[in-house]
């Protein structure tokens, strides 16, 4: 075949692939918007699941997400700091960095059954803490990776300036380097929060779900995503509508956080 023709064909196919990708995004968003908006009423946000709303589910999902963030952010950031500031270039750092990346892609359902084994089975009840820990395990490697990446962008001169001022290592890290990387790390935390807030599989056997409003994390805890999974398979129309409403709200939240995160990095 003429190589000019072949060239045209390949370029056309590539363009078509990009259009297919974008097509699916819009297809999903449009159906979601259509089904979601038509299923949402004011009571959706004021009632709990037991009365046909998602109030308790939203509060529950966010509570678990926030607790997970509180666990994962200090651990993940400190790990990133160790990899970049304390063991930069060492063999150990390279291995730990790669292992953390591997953890990032670990099957989420496995994290769920892992946490079940030591936070649900011994107590005999699903609970919100277990859900939070499962989400935190998903979140830590993402925070490690962003912290590591963002610290690598901090100019070496800043570290040297800190040393020249006679600052101790941890003072330099806390007062100079972290300040310089603040925007990037905050964005990373935001994006990883968006990742875990939409997770379902790690929550199925840890928090499970609760139809009623509760803030007691020692008992079964309401989850938006687990509810969507349950509701979508019910045969009645009202349940399905609630599932669509919940899906719509979840997607809007996740995509908004993503766009905000992206905007924050761009404007920098």
């Amino acid at each position: 075949m003429n190589r000019l023709v072949l060239n045209k064909i390949i370029l056309l196919l590539s363009t078509v692939s990009a259009m297919i990708g974008i097509g699916f995004l819009f297809w999903i968003l449009i159906t979601l918007g259509y089904k979601g908006i038509s299923s949402i009423h004011i009571t959706t946000f004021t009632h709990d699941m037991v009365n046909g709303g998602i109030r308790n589910l939203l509060v529950g999902q966010f509570t678990m997400g926030l607790v997970a963030t509180l666990i994962a952010v200090p651990l993940g950031m400190m790990a990133g700091i160790y990899l970049r500031e304390y063991s930069y270039g060492s063999k150990l750092a390279a291995v730990l960095r790669n292992l953390s990346d591997v953890m990032m892609s670990a099957p989420s359902i496995v994290v769920g059954v892992f946490v079940y084994a030591f936070m649900v089975a011994p107590f005999g009840t699903y609970n919100g803490w277990a859900g939070s820990v499962a989400l935190a395990i998903m979140m830590i490697p993402i925070i490690v990776s962003t912290t590591d990446n963002m610290l690598s962008l901090v100019p070496q001169e800043l570290r040297e300036a800190g040393i020249a001022l006679g600052g101790s290592k941890h003072k330099i890290i806390l007062q100079i380097i972290l300040k310089a990387a603040k925007v990037g790390i905050t964005t990373g935390i935001l994006l990883s929060f968006a990742r875990i807030i939409g997770e379902t599989a790690p929550l199925l056997f840890t928090s499970s779900n609760n139809q009623f409003f509760t803030m007691n994390m020692n008992e079964q805890f309401p989850s938006l995503t687990v509810s969507i999974y349950n509701l979508a398979t019910y045969p009645d129309e009202a349940s399905r509508e609630l599932a669509w409403a919940a899906s719509f709200v979840l997607t809007v939240i996740v995509l908004l956080i993503n766009l905000i995160g992206r905007y924050a990095t761009r404007s920098k």
Binding site: L75, G76, A79, Y82, L99, M103, A106, H170, L174
Partner: peptide, 30 residues
């Protein structure tokens, strides 16, 4: 924060993912 403590905590955090992987394997195997 104490310098030594800070370093130790960051080392502990960095090794956490390794212990998580080992822990997951051990628990699943058990």
């Amino acid at each position: 924060m104490n310098a030594k403590l800070f370093r130790q905590f960051s080392f502990f955090s960095a090794t956490l993912t390794f212990f998580l992987l080992v822990g997951i394997f051990a628990v699943l195997f058990d």
